[in-house]
């Protein structure tokens, strides 16, 4: 007897549209729930990984702009951080979706040199791109605030030392300021990454429709809770998945954090 083999082949990739078309309707087994909710986790991980990855770069840029002496860098960065951090992600999803729907449908040809692709604006109304953009902007603002705080607490001595050995401009930033900022920001940044990972459950719950029932873990969990009217099975399952992946994420970040701090003596930490 193989464990959930049938369900696995039917539903393991259901969240991206491969496998059985119809979701289980009656005689829902534990296997169905485990496999399908796990399949939905792919979306949560997809959103979290890409948003955090791209968000890192925008956040660094926004944090630097926020710390700039020039008002035309500083003020837009401040406004961006204020609007995103001051409003619920839920509302941001709604607004983005309504705005994306209003954009006229068209295709834009982009020449990549070796091949030509057509970028279509209707992709924005789909979760894979539209929700990703919202999550990306959201995490960028929160992370920018964290990075800005860290940037402000980079020790003055480090900067003076950098000046003393003749570093300046981009080199000084790359070698001294940026690593120190990351090191200081890392614990809060870990928290933000966890928050964002958890926020991915909002995607299909707010405005973005799950096309052909391709949804994330919470989409399937609530589907099962609706069908069986028994919350005591699907929700603990999704909770288990999230606990496992959050632990994984924490481990990954603490590994990176240790690498950032590797030159610092242990008794100084």
């Amino acid at each position: 007897m193989s464990l959930c083999a049938q369900e696995f082949s039917d539903y393991a990739l259901r969240a991206i549209g491969i496998g059985e078309r119809l979701l289980p309707k009656h005689d829902i087994t534990l296997c169905d729930q485990f496999v399908l909710i796990g399949s939905g986790m792919m979306w949560n991980i997809y959103f979290a990984v890409l948003a955090v990855f791209f968000g890192f770069f925008l956040a660094t840029a926004v944090a630097l702009a926020r710390a700039s002496d020039r008002w035309f860098f500083r003020l837009p960065a401040k406004a961006f951080i204020f609007v995103i951090r001051g409003s619920p992600l839920f509302i941001q999803f709604f607004i983005a979706y309504e705005a994306f729907v209003l954009i006229p449908k068209m295709g834009i040809d982009i020449n990549l040199g070796f091949t030509e692709i057509t970028v279509e604006t209707r992709w924005l109304t789909k979760a894979w791109l539209g929700a990703l953009i919202v999550l990306f902007l959201n995490t960028s603002a929160y992370t920018a605030q964290i990075f800005h705080g860290a940037l402000m607490s980079v020790p003055k001595g480090d900067l003076e030392a950098a000046d003393a050995i003749g570093l300046s401009g981009f080199k000084k930033f790359r070698r001294i300021v940026f690593p120190a900022m990351l090191r200081l920001a890392w614990p809060s940044y870990t928290n933000e990454a966890i928050f964002l990972f958890h926020a991915t459950t909002l995607v299909f719950f707010s405005s973005f429709p799950a096309w052909r029932q391709k949804g994330d873990a919470l989409y399937y969990a609530s589907y099962f809770a609706d069908k069986t009217f028994d919350p005591f099975i699907p929700y603990p399952i999704i909770a288990l998945y999230f606990v496992i992946f959050t632990l994984l994420l924490t481990l990954l970040f603490s590994f990176a954090g240790r690498r950032l701090n590797r030159h610092i003596r242990k008794d100084h930490q």
Partner: peptide, 19 residues
């Protein structure tokens, strides 16, 4: 709450409490 998204708790706690 560190491991589990809050919205899952809402969805769960509400039905569980009701039932």
């Amino acid at each position: 709450v560190r491991g589990i998204p809050d919205i899952i708790f809402f969805m769960f706690a509400l039905i569980a409490l009701d039932q």
